[in-house]
């Protein structure tokens, strides 16, 4: 028994020592590689730090699109240090600190808190954001002109809310009451709620918002919303994306149709239709912006925030059959 403990102790110490030894072992290798850089500027390699807020379908797709774009253009000349804050906002500060101190060539910040931490960490290294809806609010910039005027640019996942509202009107012209359900913890959802409420109110709907704090009270809130309204609108909300099943199980039996802000939510929540953006495309666009900055020397301060390259009207055939809705030909099946 005592020997066992001693062995465990020794093994653990060795593990720690190995960790620290590897830390000391290879400084020469590093200095070997650095001088070769300036000789051949063509063969220069780029280090890119990716800071993603949380594991999530849409964010993962954006990160993948970003990596694919740069790998397509630069091949193995680009190296990624991909880190995930696992949902804890303050870890994104730890990650950005790591990136800045190791001198990456560009930081890609996926989601709002990641972008904010990146902005705080450096005003020199170029930063590209993605999956951020409203850059003016996220970065605390007063006169928002579409450009940040500093080392930051990126892509916005804002689906055109006026078109979303128009689509809702096209499908349900006779409805009176529209309920919007979203998570109170998500700044982007609140923004979408505000904007689409204005559009829908202008069209003559009476609109009411229903917020929940986490998945535990979603069911209660969704029940209330569905029983009080003719149509439900779901914005691009991460918490709804993870719990769309709950809404589907309440809305379908109650025969209340759903319009969703995004494809994944639409199919999971049993929604009728959506105006869809692809987070992969969004990430890919961000990757192309990174290429322009790294290789063509563009200044992020002068680059406009870009939006998803295309929007597609999509519908859910099964659900439309259930509700007996027929849609114009321009809608694609999900």
């Amino acid at each position: 028994m005592k020997n066992m403990k001693r062995i465990i102790l020794i093994l653990m110490s060795i593990a720690l020592v190995l960790l620290s030894l590897t830390a000391c072992g290879k400084s020469p290798e590093v200095s070997d590689t650095t001088p070769s850089g300036p000789e051949q500027p063509e063969a220069q390699s780029y280090n890119i730090g990716i800071c993603q807020l949380v594991q999530h379908e849409a964010l993962d797709a954006a990160t993948k699109g970003f990596r694919d774009a740069l790998t397509d253009k630069l091949g193995d000349k680009v190296k990624f240090d991909e880190q995930n804050a696992n949902g804890e906002p303050d870890i994104s500060a730890t990650i950005c600190n790591q990136f800045v101190s190791s001198g990456v060539d560009l930081i890609m910040a996926n989601a709002t808190p990641a972008l904010q931490a990146a902005q705080t960490s450096t005003n020199k290294i170029p930063i590209l954001g993605t999956s951020v809806t409203d850059y003016g609010t996220a970065l605390d910039i007063d006169d928002w002109t579409g450009k940040t005027g500093k080392n930051i640019s990126g892509t916005s996942d804002l689906a055109p809310l006026d078109q979303q509202a128009a689509m809702l009107h096209e499908i349900f012209p006779d409805a009176h009451k529209v309920g919007i359900i979203y998570c109170s913890a998500e700044p982007n959802s609140k923004y979408q709620d505000k904007v689409i409420t204005e559009h829908l109110t202008d069209m003559g709907y009476s609109v009411k918002s229903y917020t929940f704090s986490d998945s535990n009270d979603l069911q209660t809130v969704a029940k209330a919303a569905i029983s009080e309204n003719d149509v439900i609108y779901l914005p691009t909300d991460n918490t709804i994306a993870s719990n769309a099943e709950i809404i589907k199980n309440i809305a379908l039996p109650a025969k209340v149709p759903i319009i969703a802000g995004e494809e994944g939510i639409c199919s999971a929540s049993g929604g009728v239709a959506t105006l869809s953006i692809s987070y992969y495309d969004l990430g890919y666009t961000t990757g192309e912006m990174a290429y322009e900055i790294l290789v063509n020397g563009k200044d992020p301060a002068t680059m406009e925030i870009r939006y998803a390259p295309k929007f597609t009207k999509k519908y859910n055939p099964d659900i439309c059959d259930t509700f007996g809705i027929t849609l114009p030909d321009e809608y694609e099946a999900l």
Binding site: C96, S121, T122, N123, L139, D140, E186, P187, K190
Partner: peptide
């Protein structure tokens, strides 16, 4: 906190305000 923040998230830009500590 939601009421105080008037939402879920508010940025305080280190370029605009004098902060006690900053990652910058």
């Amino acid at each position: 906190n939601l009421l105080v923040l008037d939402g879920a998230n508010r940025a305080v830009n280190v370029d605009k305000y004098h902060l006690i500590v900053s990652l910058r």
